[in-house]
Structure formats: structure tokens, C-alpha cells
């Protein structure tokens, strides 16, 4: 297994942006997945993969504090992310941003107000600056003209981009994406991928994506973690391009190889597994 070597590579002297240590996730007393363990470098693009029902979304919810972990630890930038310390948890959450599946925009506010909300809550900036910043974030996701529109008046792709603008409001150091390509056509999905890459490149934002869109995985992911529903544990952490052919787990190889020709363009043709 090349998990350990990858993790050594990812754990230099600098503190990891996100560290997950022997985490068990689930609801109440029902564990869905155990032994999740990985560390993210700052500025890395990391994908959480797995089949349906493998607990990808549950892991994401645990990482952003919506449900408590059953066991194990999550820490951001070397600081423990702990539900027993709501103030500390909130402080860390302000350094993260989340793009939910449907954008999760507040329907009673227009896009500008949606983006401005985190700034109003967590900063002491004056009104004019807040609105200027909100417009700037909207322009970052190419929605500069749509600030006055309401969520019910825009398309699904625009909602996701507006949700991204809101997630970016406080200039987070880590961005979480919940199935960014779900419900988008391939072109729009590709544009969103490009936006993610641009933000990662220009702002140095660490990116964590829950997805099973292979095109996005091979276009963006530096490393992935693969959650397996059958064995209820993580099977691999590593580079999807090497895992596709070299993973000892047939499940992982199959999952990644299903991308087939599309991903083959970006690397030397692989020998069939």
C-alpha cells in the first residue's frame, strides 16, 4: 500500500492544513466508517471518493462540525477542532468555507446580501466596504452583474457559483465542496472546476472536494482518499493517477479506471488492470 509514503510526503515540518486521525464517523451510536486517517498540505487539492452510501457526505459533515465524530480527532492548522469548545471551533470555522450541493443560498436575500452576510456577522467593516467586497467576490465567480437577483431567479450553475462566492467571503484558508458537479452539465461543471483551480492557484486555498465525477478528479486532484462502503474503512490515500493502475485494491482501480479514455489523455496510456 502506498498510503504511508504519501502521508510522509504530506507531513513536512509545516503543520498540515487539515489533519484527520483515526476518525470514526456516523450518527448517534451507528458508525458508518472507521479508521479514517489523512493529512493535507497547505494549498493542496484533495478529493474524498467512495461509492454511494460510503459516508463521503458524513465525513464532510464531520469535518465542518455539523455532526460530532464518534472517535478520533480532526485538527485544522495544528489546532484541535473540538465540539466541546464551541468558541474555538467557531474560530476555526471562520477560516474555512463550504459550498453545499445546491449552493444553500438564503432565498429571502439577493446574491449580494447572501455574500455579504458572513462579512456582516464576523467583521466590523463599514457597510460600503462590505458591499464592495461582496461585489468583488461575485465578480470572482463571474456573477458581477447578478448581485441584485434572488436565488429563485438564477440557474443551478449560477447558484453554485454564488454559493462559492459566499464561501469565499471571509477569504478562507480551506474550502470544502460537496459534490460540486452534481446537477451540472459537463461544460458548466468544467467551468466550475476551472474556477476551483484558479482560486487554489491564485489564493493558495486548500481545497477538499467530495465528488465522484472522474473528469474533475483527474483534472484537479493531487491526492484522494477512497472510502469503501463494504469494508467500512478507507482503502487508499494517494495520487489518483498512480492508484488507478497500482492500487492493490480492485475496488479502487475499478472506480478510477471507469473514467477510461477521458483521463487517459492526461497521462501515458495505462496497462489494463
Amino acid at each position: 500500500m502506498n498510503g504511508p509514503t504519501e502521508q510522509e510526503k504530506a507531513a513536512p515540518e509545516e503543520t498540515p492544513a487539515l489533519a484527520v486521525e483515526s476518525l470514526t464517523i456516523g450518527y448517534g451510536s451507528k458508525a458508518i466508517m472507521a479508521g479514517i486517517d489523512f493529512r493535507l498540505r497547505r494549498g493542496e487539492i484533495f478529493f474524498i471518493l467512495g461509492g454511494s452510501g460510503s459516508g463521503k457526505s458524513t465525513l464532510l459533515k464531520t469535518l465542518i462540525g455539523l455532526i460530532p465524530p464518534l472517535k478520533g480527532k480532526v485538527s485544522f492548522f495544528g489546532q484541535l477542532f473540538d465540539g466541546d469548545d464551541p468558541r474555538g471551533q467557531q474560530a476555526l470555522l471562520q477560516r474555512t468555507g463550504v459550498l453545499y450541493q445546491g449552493g444553500a443560498l438564503f432565498s429571502s436575500m439577493n446574491l449580494r446580501e447572501n455574500v455579504a452576510l458572513p462579512l456582516r456577522i464576523h467583521t466590523r467593516l463599514d457597510e460600503k466596504t462590505i458591499l464592495a467586497l461582496a461585489d468583488y467576490k461575485l465578480r470572482l465567480v463571474e456573477l458581477g452583474m447578478a448581485g441584485d437577483r434572488f436565488p429563485s431567479e438564477i440557474s443551478g450553475g449560477m447558484m453554485k457559483r454564488a454559493g462559492l462566492a459566499r464561501a469565499l467571503a471571509l477569504d478562507p484558508e480551506i474550502l470544502f465542496f460537496d459534490e460540486p458537479s452534481a446537477g451540472l452539465d459537463p461544460v458548466t461543471s468544467h467551468q466550475l472546476d476551472e474556477t476551483i483551480r484558479r482560486l487554489n492557484h491564485s489564493l493558495g486555498t486548500t481545497v477538499v472536494v467530495v465528488s465522484h465525477e472522474l473528469a474533475s478528479i483527474f483534472a484537479l486532484a493531487e491526492r484522494i482518499v477512497f472510502l469503501d462502503a463494504a469494508s467500512r474503512q478507507q482503502l487508499e490515500v494517494g495520487d489518483p493517477r498512480t492508484l488507478r493502475t497500482d492500487s492493490p485494491h480492485a475496488t479502487v482501480r475499478e472506480f478510477l479506471a471507469r473514467g477510461g479514455d477521458d483521463s487517459a489523455k492526461q497521462e501515458p496510456p495505462a496497462t489494463p488492470a
Partner: peptide
Amino acid sequence: NDELNALQT
């Protein structure tokens, strides 16, 4: 629509 989760985070 995850709006409650968004508020919480």
C-alpha cells in the same frame, strides 16, 4: 437545501 447547515458553519 442545506441552508440551516450553512448558517451553522
